[in-house]
Design a protein around this nucleic acid. Structure first.
Length: 194
DNA sequence: CCAGTGATACTCT
DNA sequence: GAGTATCACTGGT
């Protein structure tokens, strides 16, 4: 079942936890691809009285982060290092800039199409890593702001699973945020980023 | 290990 | 408006 708006209305941490084990679906003319989400990170808000200075919205509303301040359940896609995209889902209430970064997944459907999109990629490099996940699922900046409740890109409920908690990756620049235990992975899965 | 790549958000004028 | 440091990454040595 496709997630309704209400499923994105909770905090970033809560939504990030619940997204692990759920399915990410993209329906396109060339075919349907589905990943089981294995790794997420929460961004925005506070942890133990400290603000998340690792979040893009930390310094307030800008053209890029605009979608994060709106209705939950929309795609926040941005270009990183001039070449790759990162895909986030906005959550929490309007005016609160919470989001969840999808970092990895395991192919469930459309693996042939995914392999076609990923060229020479071997093993878990097929879909693990935020940039790779976007390449595998054909997610680019044209999907910025897309509504996951009504559009061709959306989340479906998966099967219940156990979750492991760790620190977020590659945000050493954040004074407070680097410490937050806001990365969630599917317990025992090999389909996670490095 | 490290180069590639360009939008973004700053800082000055 | 112009200049520039930085980046929630990846693929090939």
């Amino acid at each position: 079942m496709r997630w309704p708006r209400a499923d994105y209305a909770g905090s970033a941490v809560d939504t990030a936890r619940r997204l692990v084990g759920a399915h990410l679906v993209h329906e396109m003319p060339e075919g349907r691809t589905v990943l089981r989400i294995t790794e997420t990170e929460a961004y925005g808000g506070w942890y133990e009285g400290r603000p998340d200075d690792g979040a893009h919205a930390y310094r307030g509303r800008t053209a890029r982060t605009e979608v994060l301040f709106g209705e939950p359940g929309h795609a926040y896609v941005y270009l990183i290092y001039g070449m790759y995209c990162c895909f986030n889902i906005s959550c929490d209430g309007e005016g609160t800039a919470g989001c969840v970064l999808l970092r990895a997944g395991e192919p469930v459907e459309g693996e042939e199409l995914i392999r076609q999109r990923r060229g020479k990629a071997k093993g878990t490099a097929l879909t693990c890593g935020p940039g790779r996940l976007c390449l595998a699922m054909a997610i680019d900046r044209s999907l910025y702001g897309a509504d996951l409740v009504t559009g061709p890109l959306y989340v479906e409920s998966g099967t219940p699973c156990e979750i492991e908690i760790s620190r977020r990756k590659h945000i050493d620049y954040a004074t407070y945020g680097r410490e937050f235990p806001w990365r969630f992975t599917l317990k025992g899965s090999l389909w996670v980023s490095r």
